[in-house]
Design a protein around this nucleic acid. Sequence first.
DNA 1: CTATATTTGGGTAATTAGGGTC
DNA 2: TGTGTCCTAATTACCCAAATAT
Lengths: 69, 69
Amino acid sequence: MTSTVAGGRLLTPGEVAALFRVDPKTVTRWATAGRIGSIRTPGGHRRFRESEVNQLLAELTTDASTPTA
Amino acid sequence: MTSTVAGGRLLTPGEVAALFRVDPKTVTRWATAGRIGSIRTPGGHRRFRESEVNQLLAELTTDASTPTA
DNA sequence: CTATATTTGGGTAATTAGGGTC
DNA sequence: TGTGTCCTAATTACCCAAATAT
């Protein structure tokens, strides 16, 4: 299955929620607030682009400046 | 190369605070001071890497076989 | 078509962020 | 210097039932 359309993979709210360690409902709010792009299925469910999610995740990630001491 | 957007589970400030027996506010200060890496949700809340937290815990653990000075 | 897991929607508690102070 | 506690505002989590996805 999965047509695998050339381009980006689509993630479900549950997948994105797991990446950020938040509730799927929260991801929905991000989409509603325009903080993250979303694609709606004909049924009204949201899907998110993996590339955009990873990009967002990378931008919001802060590494410790003092690793090991 | 240790990826930045994948690896281990993420912990909430309250979870980390419970592990260290400190106030969540203190964990926030650690993140602000750059002593521990953090991932911010689009809403501004922080999530911490369990592996990094465990490593920090191990480093702070005063062990007989762990000469810190 | 049936069946299971997920997502949606609204509303309310719990947690977190940020500043200031001890 | 580091931590705990005060406050308010914002964000997030969990409750329900119905609809959608696979």
